[in-house]
């Protein structure tokens, strides 16, 4: 674990990407979002992906989570090639192993916080109770509120509770604090930190905010669809000590 000083290199890769490329459109309007990206995510580590807009962060994350498919290359999860899976295989992968947190929460407006979490626990093989998941993010008091009755930070914590309630192997967060002020953002990051620590969930966070990088085991920089640099932090900073 990052906190007790072990290096990530000692652990096996939870998710391995080999030679990933993603090309949108064709001909004149062809856009190369990813070019030949290779990356290992190790079990239990926390990585932060940094990069400018259009650098390919989201595309990479979506492909790693089975939300999208690469044009070429493959993603290996527990030795299996996800890119060889059909839609049903990818669906199973997401259902059983992956949690997502999006920048704009994507809560179902017509369901309460608890029900939004239940939406995921009902189809997962070994979930926690929705109440338990909401307690992890400190929202046990507001379980029966509808999204419209919650603040932005609270909504994002519901989204995190929803993502972790299935006890995912991998938690993928796309700009989880992007729509939040710094105080609320830190509360959200604390929630992610505790999930990573307590559940040993491999966590990847996309952000624009380089301050966030300090809480990661590794920081991966992307530019123009390629990994330009990977930094390893000697030690992780606690989220509550961050400020921006």
């Amino acid at each position: 674990m990052g906190s007790d000083g072990e290096t990530a290199g000692d652990r096996s890769a939870a998710l391995r990407a080999v030679g990933l490329s993603k090309i949108y459109g064709s001909g004149e309007v062809e856009v190369r979002a990813l070019s030949d990206v290779a990356l290992d995510l190790y079990a239990g580590e926390m990585v932060v992906l940094l990069g400018a807009s259009g650098s390919g962060k989201s595309t990479l994350l979506n492909i790693l989570g089975g939300l999208d498919t690469p044009t070429t290359g493959s993603v290996l999860f527990e030795g299996q090639d996800l890119t060889a899976s059909d839609d049903a295989g990818l669906t199973r992968f997401r259902r059983d192993y992956v949690g997502f947190v999006f920048q704009f929460y994507n809560l179902i407006a017509s369901l309460t916080a608890r029900e939004n979490v239940a939406l995921v626990t009902e189809i997962a093989p070994d979930p926690m109770d929705p109440e338990e998941a909401l307690a992890v993010v400190g929202l046990e008091e507001r379980m029966d509120h509808f999204p419209a009755q919650l603040s932005g930070g609270e909504q994002q914590r519901v989204a995190i509770a929803r993502a972790i309630a299935k006890r995912p192997k991998i938690l993928l967060c796309d700009e989880p604090t992007g729509a939040l002020d710094s105080k609320t953002g830190i509360i959200v990051l604390e929630a992610l930190e505790s999930v990573n620590r307590e559940l040993q969930t491999t966590t990847a966070i996309i952000t624009h905010n380089s301050v966030t990088a300090a809480m990661a085991d590794r920081v991966i920089y992307l530019a123009d669809g390629r990994i330009s640099r990977i930094d390893r932090n000697a030690s992780r900073k606690a989220a509550r000590t961050l400020a921006w």
Binding site: G65, T91, F93, R94, R95, V98, F100, N106, R162
Partner: peptide, 16 residues
């Protein structure tokens, strides 16, 4: 459409 995508992202199958 976007809700359908979201449910799919959670791992609901197309049939579900």
């Amino acid at each position: 459409r976007s809700e359908i995508g979201l449910l799919k992202a959670f791992g609901y199958s197309s049939a579900q």
